[in-house]
Design a protein around this nucleic acid. Structure first.
Lengths: 337, 337
DNA sequence: CTGTTAGCGCCTTCAA
DNA sequence: TTGAAGGCGCTAACAG
């Protein structure tokens, strides 16, 4: 029947010629859309398989007016370091990849150095993706707000604020801070410090929740130490801090990486954790249980967060109404406190 | 001059109408390709900016017969755990993202559960990307070999073997193993063990290099402990191992994550590192210096590796000849040994 | 220097 | 049930 036409099959046109049918028939057979004789469909699908042919996704998408891809953007606004290697983001990225694949989307990964205030609009207008997930609002709240007014399919992982025009999914950072405070108080700690960069909205909320849960006299003496997010910077900051003679008995760190850096710096200066100093982290990254001593930390449910991000984005893409969600954190008590 | 035509500008056709020129003129102006009157070009670029118009990348790519994207694939063949959160891989991904962006490519991230032996061909034939970078050959050597015979633009991060038909970039794992062995010997250690899953070719090479560098009598007593890659699994394995009364004085771990798990398990059973036990890791992930004690490890130059991967892939895309490269590892001595 | 035209590979309406 | 034809947004000959 079919000509034993050799040569590579590059398009439905080729396949149609070989099968002796029209391109539209091939299209219908391979997309399983539209009415088509069962036998014809099977025959063409078989032929395609045999010849190793698959529809060209790019052309398909162009025709359908979509891209089939979702961008995951990491704005590196406040921290220039190797942000992308932060274990928290990485775990998040893993779950996002899985969830987006399940939904039939490709994941386009992009590190962004936000320059000026139209990097986001530019990216969106280039038309490479159908929607955008942004991990961490960094210091780009204004840009996000502006874009959100005219671009729907965008969801941000980060701290919630009723003032934001954009959709967020994120841990309830304030209550996380409060839990950490209560835990340190329960341990009898009274000379406290917070390590973190409060220019990052998420960290600011953790600090605020922490402070708010302390009795006045404790709060008054609580120190704020501006630690950066990379291990190196955190370590140096903690080292200098201890070297200057500061001896708090409880530290709440804005992230597990910072907490582990603090423990390392403390060990070096013979400050015993948890005997002399209790340390509480934030995130519960996989590495936290391998810290020495294993890290007490405020757990963010990363998997759930990733799922919510994708679900919400898909709702937006489907034109359904939806709203920001805060996820309740939980404390994981190990041995560092 | 130009009509003050309102309404959104969705394509070069729209913009051409507004500007009173032809579509090809707009195309030439916006791509900065082809000869064009300087003034005309400026005028159209300005107009585009003003109306917030950018070329549709998807259409552009379709026309040019490319996609502008490179896939980064993670075959999760041998380990079902959260491989994507492995810090080594993450650091690699970060550098790849940066380097590919520099080269004008998008990065398409995909976790792959290799099923059957045509997952790779299927992916490639879907035409979503111009090239493929695969992180870790896992247990998929045969699949990679077969694909490499008919698909050029593919580079693999992993162990080199002259038997492979595919291009690899990777650390010289054997010599890394040898360096670790020499270091432990120098420290006076003689009762040794290797922790790692030797079904993974990279780990097998580390083990092999390790063994080969040992004197016969030490080698004969060296134990192989089959530890998985996730922190949880490694920790459990090390815990059971120590609990069973085993007391080596030197351990070489296939990865930093495993090494840190071993240290955590040792600490729990009051085995002092490095007094009673020297531990050497592999990778030098950022976290390694935060371990307690800070981890002695065989460093892989991840940044250089990522750059080479991208460079090599681009050479392939340009049709230039190229060959596999091994990167020399270096030991970073800290306090765990 | 600029316009006209023919596709890139696919989907879909309309007709047969 | 199937085919013909137009077009998604863009680029690149080829003319003028």
């Amino acid at each position: 029947m079919a000509d034993k036409d050799e040569g590579p099959v590059r398009s439905i046109t080729d396949l149609a010629r070989i099968a002796g049918v029209s391109v539209s028939t091939v299209s219908r057979a391979l997309t399983s859309k539209g009415a088509l004789n069962k036998e014809t469909r099977r025959r063409i699908q078989l032929l395609a398989e045999e010849r190793g042919f698959q529809l060209n996704v790019a052309a398909q998408n162009l025709r359908l007016g979509r891209t089939g891809a979702i961008a995951v953007l990491l704005p590196l606004g406040h921290e220039r370091g190797q942000h992308l290697s932060d274990p928290f983001f990485m775990a998040m990225l893993g779950w996002l990849a899985e969830k987006l694949t399940d939904r039939g989307y490709d994941l386009l990964l992009s590190r962004v150095l936000p320059e000026g205030d139209d990097w986001l609009d530019n990216f969106i207008r280039s038309g490479r993706v159908d929607g955008v997930i942004i991990i961490g609002q960094s210091n780009q709240g204004a840009v996000l707000d502006r874009t959100a007014r005219h671009y729907e399919p965008m969801v941000i992982w980060g701290a919630y604020s009723p003032r934001n025009a954009y959709l967020t999914i994120g841990t309830d950072n304030q209550s996380g801070g409060a839990i950490a405070a209560q835990h340190l108080l329960d341990k009898g700690r009274r000379r406290l410090a917070f390590f973190g960069n409060v220019a990052v909205p998420e960290f600011a909320a953790r600090y605020q929740g922490f402070l708010a849960a302390l009795p006045d006299e404790v709060r008054a003496s609580t120190e704020l130490v501006h630690a950066h997010i990379t291990p190196e910077a955190s370590y140096r900051m903690a080292s200098d801090y201890f070297a200057s003679g500061k001896r708090p008995d409880g530290i709440f760190a804005a992230s597990d990486v910072t907490a582990m850096s603090i423990i390392a710096a403390a060990a070096e200066q013979n400050i015993r954790v948890p005997d002399q100093l209790s340390v509480v982290g934030f995130d519960d990254v996989p590495m936290a249980q391998l810290a020495n001593p294993p890290l007490t930390t405020i757990r963010q449910d990363i998997k759930r967060g990733a799922h919510l991000l994708v679900d919400l984005l898909c709702q937006r893409l489907a034109g359904q109404p939806c709203q920001s969600i805060q996820i309740a954190p939980a404390i994981i008590v190990r041995e560092s406190s």
